[in-house]
């Protein structure tokens, strides 16, 4: 009888790599945004909106946020794998995190493209 846990297998290397690639994307974006903020003398509403107004900045921000959401999924899943022993509860938590992160992704697009 095949008695496989809900965690499955064979995604370890891919997720290990993805965790690092997404981390580097976020690191580069962090440096970019810190540099842009330091280069802005007064941050009022216009300047703040203007920061995210160019198309390339919208795409860079979206790329960083999508990286963040995937990174958060891998991280939260690893935490649940370690501490939540009950399969059903763990599965429910996975679903909850995935649903939240997909919703955040949609929300991020909405925020960025209403500027």
């Amino acid at each position: 009888m095949v008695n496989r846990a809900v965690t499955g297998a064979h995604y370890g290397l891919r997720d290990w790599l993805a965790q690092r690639v997404t981390a580097v994307v976020m690191l580069l974006y962090t440096l970019l945004i810190v540099w842009l903020l330091l280069a802005t003398p007064v941050i009022d509403h216009d300047a703040w909106r203007g920061l995210f107004a160019p198309q390339w900045m919208k795409l860079a921000t979206l790329l960083c946020l999508l990286s963040l959401y995937f990174h958060a999924w891998v991280g939260m899943r690893n935490i649940f794998m370690d501490y939540i022993k009950h399969g059903g509860v763990r599965l429910a938590l996975y679903a909850l995190v995935i649903a939240a992160l997909i919703a955040y992704a949609g929300w991020s697009v909405q925020i960025l493209w209403s500027i």
């Binding site: 909106r49 958060a72 991280g75 939260m76 955040y104 209403s114």
Partner: peptide, 22 residues
């Protein structure tokens, strides 16, 4: 990492608020 995940909706709400209008 877990703490940052948990505050994500608050940060998104704050970000949206800060951009919407003066």
């Amino acid at each position: 990492g877990a703490a940052l995940f948990l505050v994500l909706p608050l940060l998104l709400a704050w970000w949206q608020c800060s951009l919407s209008s003066p």
